[in-house]
């Protein structure tokens, strides 16, 4: 009897510990797209060599996406789609800042990004940093990236990475994301609704 009670209380204790741990865990991780506290946060170097944080873009909506300059298909396609969205905004384009964040810090120096990102027009800012800065940024945005060995690629590797396009509001709070492959026309229509609201 006493033993059963001890076991029962131990189980309660464990449950409390587990609950506390999970609460701490979610709190410290700051949630993710489902969490109202999810916001854009970064300190990186832009393609002109300037240190940038989300505060530099305060008051503007941010379209944020991740990629790498050696990516021949998905990344240029996303850059082209974002450029098309920005063109479609006409006079509202100034209210939105598109940001391309590299997840390949080894190859994507600011100089390498300067020779790639501006070619797409639309004032897209390329951001990169040290491997640690990029890891921290990816953590903050809850995105995933990994090196994939590919003998034929420059440097012997390519990257796998989260490819959605994120929208953050004028106070840097998360608004929504669109999966890769969403048509620019659809993104533009959604974005215009948010800008008008």
């Amino acid at each position: 009897m006493k033993m059963a009670r001890t076991i029962a209380w131990s189980l309660v204790g464990l449950a409390v510990l587990a609950f506390g741990a999970s609460w701490l865990w979610t709190d410290r991780r700051g949630g993710g797209p489902g969490d109202p506290a999810f916001a854009a946060a970064f300190e990186l170097t832009d393609h002109s060599g300037m240190i940038r944080t989300q505060e530099d873009f305060a008051g503007r909506w941010m379209l944020v996406f991740f990629g790498f300059a050696n990516c021949p298909d998905v990344c240029p396609t996303t850059l082209a789609e974002v450029a098309a969205v920005m063109d479609g905004l006409d006079e509202d384009a100034g209210r939105v800042q598109p940001l391309f964040i590299s997840i390949d810090p080894e190859r994507d120096t600011p100089t390498a990004l300067a020779a790639f990102v501006p070619a797409f027009g639309a004032d897209i800012v390329g951001l990169t940093g040290t491997p640690e800065q990029i890891a921290r940024t990816a953590d903050g945005f809850h995105i995933y990236y990994e090196k994939v060995e590919e003998a034929a690629a420059p440097g012997g590797y390519t990257m796998g990475h989260s490819s959605q396009l994120f929208l953050f509001g004028p106070e840097a709070g998360y608004v929504r994301s669109w999966p890769y492959g969403t048509l620019a026309e659809e993104i533009l229509a959604d974005l215009k609704e948010h800008l008008a609201s």
């Binding site: 990516c71 298909d73 998905v74 995933y144 990994e146 994939v148 590919e150 390519t158 990257m159 796998g160 990475h161 989260s162 490819s163 959605q164 994301s177 999966p179 890769y180 492959g181």
Partner: peptide, 13 residues
């Protein structure tokens, strides 16, 4: 090559 995007939104090639 083939680019694929999984259900978590991770693209690779």
């Amino acid at each position: 090559h083939r680019s694929v995007t999984d259900e978590k939104g991770v693209s690779s090639m």
